[in-house]
């Protein structure tokens, strides 16, 4: 197992090298050249020339790429143009928020999606089935940011059940240790702070969960339908096994494999959705930060975002690959 993980980590190297090359090209193709990333678009020609000199932009391209790689490896992503602080620090501050949000979204999607998909398959052609299939189709077709505004307008603005923005009420004097507000609240036993942070996660979490939820419902339904027709399910029924045992041992266990595959794919894709969702709910995570950086044309932040997301995406994939070996004994670690 350890050898498998180490080998998979080694396989990341060519992927990341390819990505760094793409980023390097991207940086050099920016309108105004790479010095724009440092100066913004309104710099005078004199400062531009000085910065070109200082950055060594007139060196051979290979030398420049080597230097770029070295910077990346040491975690130096430059300074943010709008915040005037190292990009890496800014990201580390905001990352826990995004992780909290995606975890909550995935919990919603899995916790609601699998039971709903199972029931829809079990009661095929019932109103529940039609509702789930129809609902998931509509959910896929709604632009996620519009759904966010809609949910916010109804449950936060009109009904006032949930907060409209942010990660925690500013009036709460919470101690932050890890940056994961819910976890911090539990660790310091400030229960009101933890609960408030959770409360702030509900609406953005539901919004972000919409597309994964729809897809999980559909895949679970299709997969369960297929398994229900298998001979071994009939055998199990003929043997007189309880409904619960058939469901757990025979149906769900066999139907889960395609679902897990999709869950893995969706988790990586959630980061795209997080950019839009965090913006709608002014949720201070890396997605909202990235969206702001687009507004400010803050290129170091944009570059850092692309790099970090890509690395996270690759690591999430690795975790999913490893989890396969636990679910499906046929997938053997080589």
């Amino acid at each position: 197992m350890l050898r498998f993980i180490v080998r998979r980590l080694l396989q990341l190297i060519p992927t990341l090298l390819g990505l760094s090359l793409l980023l390097f090209i991207w940086l050099h193709r920016l309108p105004g050249g790479p010095e724009t990333a440092l100066l913004g678009e309104r710099a005078t020609p004199e400062t531009r020339a000085a910065v070109r000199e200082a950055m060594g932009l007139d060196d051979p391209i290979f030398v420049q790429y080597g230097r770029f790689l070295k910077q990346l490896l040491t975690g130096d992503l430059g300074n943010s143009l709008s915040e005037k602080r190292p990009v890496i620090d800014l990201f580390l501050e905001r990352f826990p928020g995004t992780i909290e949000l995606t975890v909550v979204a995935m919990l919603f999607a899995i916790g609601l999606g699998i039971p709903l998909g199972y029931l829809a398959a079990k009661r095929r052609a019932s109103w529940l089935d039609h509702m789930s299939v129809g609902g998931s189709l509509v959910a896929i077709c709604i632009p996620i940011f519009f759904l966010g505004y809609l949910i916010k307008a109804v449950f936060a603005v009109k009904l006032g059940w949930f907060p409209t923005f942010g990660r925690q009420d500013t009036t709460i004097d919470a101690t932050h240790i890890t940056g994961f507000y819910v976890l911090d609240g539990i660790m310091t036993q400030e229960w009101d702070a933890a609960l408030d942070a959770l409360w702030h996660l509900v609406l953005p979490g539901l919004t972000l969960a919409s597309i994964p939820l729809a897809i999980i419902v559909r895949i679970t339904r299709a997969s369960v339908l297929e398994v229900l027709n298998e001979d071994y399910v009939r055998t199990a029924q003929a043997k007189g096994l309880t409904e619960r045992r058939i469901r757990g041992r025979h149906v769900l266990r066999n139907a889960m494999l395609p679902v897990v595959t999709v869950i893995g794919l969706l988790t990586g894709g959630l980061l795209s959705g997080a950019v839009l969702t965090e913006t709608v709910f002014s949720f201070t995570g890396i997605g909202q930060f990235a969206a702001q950086s687009i507004d400010h044309r803050d290129y170091p932040v944009m570059m850092g975002f692309i790099l970090i997301i890509a690395v996270v995406y690759v690591i999430v994939n690795l975790i999913v690959d490893i989890s396969y070996t636990f679910i499906d004994p046929r997938v053997r670690v080589r």
């Binding site: 991207w26 920016l30 894709g269 950019v275 839009l276 990235a290 944009m302 890509a310 995406y313 690759v314």
Partner: peptide
């Protein structure tokens, strides 16, 4: 390699390059 990148990210980096 393109398939491994989140789609919105790909689009954002492209739009940053072009006007």
């Amino acid at each position: 390699m393109l398939l491994a990148m989140p789609s919105l990210l790909l689009a954002i980096s492209l739009v940053a390059l072009l006007r």
